[in-house]
Amino acid sequence: MTRKETLLNLDELLKVCSSCTKKKTAGYLSTQHNRFQHYCHNTCKTGKKLQRIADDLDAEVRARRKQKKGMSA
């Protein structure tokens, strides 16, 4: 999957997350406990997909930076 396709997929998933019912529940938005983030990373299927895509993009950026750094040195 190319970077452009990945970013489009990421945008689609973020649209789903913006309409999440848990996001609007007061118990999940407590400033003392970050339950919403825990729910997204561990339970929500969309949140897990987002995390995987973010990790892949991060690895790609790091690889590009490393390659550029090696070329200039």
Score class of each variant (00 low, 15 high):
residue 65 R to C: 02
residue 60 E to H: 11
residue 3 R to Y: 08
residue 13 L to C: 07
residue 41 H to V: 11
residue 45 K to G: 09
residue 15 K to S: 04
residue 6 T to H: 07
residue 4 K to I: 06
residue 73 A to Q: 02
residue 6 T to V: 15
residue 22 K to P: 01
residue 56 D to N: 14
residue 21 T to H: 10
residue 36 F to S: 01
residue 43 T to G: 00
residue 25 T to N: 13
residue 71 M to W: 03
residue 44 C to M: 07
residue 14 L to I: 09
residue 22 K to R: 12
residue 14 L to D: 08
residue 38 H to R: 14
residue 58 D to G: 13
residue 36 F to K: 02
residue 66 K to N: 02
residue 31 T to Q: 11
residue 59 A to T: 10
residue 6 T to N: 08
residue 67 Q to R: 07
residue 1 M to E: 07
residue 17 C to W: 01
residue 1 M to S: 09
residue 19 S to W: 00
residue 33 H to S: 10
residue 29 L to K: 14
residue 53 I to K: 06
residue 16 V to I: 15
residue 69 K to N: 01
residue 51 Q to P: 01
residue 31 T to D: 07
residue 65 R to S: 02
residue 45 K to N: 12
residue 16 V to L: 13
residue 52 R to K: 15
residue 38 H to A: 15
residue 36 F to Q: 03
residue 25 T to L: 11
residue 15 K to N: 08
residue 27 G to R: 08
residue 60 E to K: 13
residue 19 S to G: 04
residue 8 L to R: 08
residue 67 Q to N: 04
residue 39 Y to K: 01
residue 30 S to I: 04
residue 41 H to F: 13
residue 62 R to N: 07
residue 44 C to S: 04
residue 50 L to Q: 06
residue 3 R to Q: 12
residue 72 S to C: 05
residue 26 A to H: 06
residue 64 R to Y: 01
residue 60 E to Q: 12
residue 61 V to Q: 12
residue 33 H to C: 09
residue 47 G to A: 09
residue 10 L to F: 12
residue 3 R to T: 11
residue 3 R to L: 11
residue 19 S to L: 06
residue 17 C to R: 03
residue 44 C to F: 08
residue 65 R to P: 00
residue 36 F to H: 07
residue 17 C to Q: 08
residue 56 D to W: 03
residue 8 L to C: 04
residue 21 T to E: 08
residue 19 S to I: 07
residue 28 Y to G: 00
residue 48 K to L: 14
residue 49 K to W: 04
residue 71 M to Y: 05
